[in-house]
Design a protein around this nucleic acid. Structure first.
Lengths: 163, 163
DNA sequence: CCTCCCCGGTTGACGTGTCAATGATGCTAA
DNA sequence: TTAGCATCATTGACACGTCAACCGGGGAGG
């Protein structure tokens, strides 16, 4: 850890200029990308990325219904965030919440026809957007590399705490 | 564009399952990563990523001062976003706004001692975080690839509109 | 000169996220 | 039984972003 040379060179110090440049470019670019994808979704479906994630999870769920906590775990959100979001979605009629009959205190979230409809209308365009803005931008090698990089980063972040 | 085969196969359709998997993993991972980096910065500096970006730009500016619009362009924000953020930062004493003497109607943003101090205290830890959570997670090849991918994506998004 | 429009900046409304505190309800241990 | 205690979900306060509207001061062109 401690080296004779005055902590320059390889090992365990601050990022180099080049590394920092890559970091900034990487972060900024993914931010622009996701915001562009989200805004397209918003414009031609009136759904936010969050709405879409929730609707997708519910659509794929057994009876188009899930326990709130299971839903939160599935899409990797804090329960509080989900609760706020569900409140807004409920106001718009996309989902409904109801007391679970089987397990007391287990609030169920379920898809309304309106929500299912909205999701169906949104899906095709959204997938096309992903293809256009992400997949088509990269060579097959780059796409594979992107997958590897994501895996490496996630591994390194550690499976712990979901924040 | 229109092919004899019923728009299956290569070419111009929806992402495959594998491509979609990579997309989701990529997006989720970068979200977790940036949120983790941001939350570390917040915890040990009481600065958000936005605060940091603004302070960095001002610190590097000629007299630690910049026109608001130049600042917005420099960090790639909408003017409205910057205005809101500067309001919050001004309330905390990190920056000040003043009417520009030379050019009328040109509002100048300038670093306060408090802001400069906060930035200095934050920088080292922030760079270390980037090294730990990003640079150290990747092999040199992967790091290079990350740079290439960012460049390709940004290129593909087109230099137009900064949203 | 006057009008129109653009430009830089701000504001308000509202959706979104986080954190910390709160209710409500079961489980466990004294 | 009852006193904690953990868990599920919600709430309130506040930071952050976007969108659309607005304001004030220059020009450019009539």
């Amino acid at each position: 850890m401690v080296d004779a040379t005055p902590e320059r060179r390889r090992g365990r110090q601050l990022p180099t200029m080049e590394e920092l440049r890559i970091w900034r470019n990487f972060v900024e670019t993914t931010e622009i990308l996701t915001s562009r994808v989200g805004s397209r979704l918003q414009v031609d479906s009136s759904l936010s990325s969050g709405d879409y994630a929730v609707l997708l999870a519910l659509t794929e769920a057994p009876e188009s219904r899930m326990r709130s906590s299971a839903l939160a775990a599935h899409i990797g959100w804090e329960r509080s965030r989900l609760s706020h979001h569900l409140g807004r979605m409920e106001r718009r009629g996309l989902i409904r919440r109801e007391e679970c009959a089987t397990v007391p205190r287990g609030s169920q979230v379920l898809l309304t026809p309106v929500g299912a409809e909205a999701f169906q209308r949104a899906t095709f365009g959204h997938l096309r957007t992903i293809r256009e803005l992400f997949v088509d931008a990269l060579t097959p090698d780059q796409l594979r590399a992107a997958g590897d990089i994501a895996a490496a980063l996630r591994e390194h972040l550690g499976p712990r705490d979901d924040a």
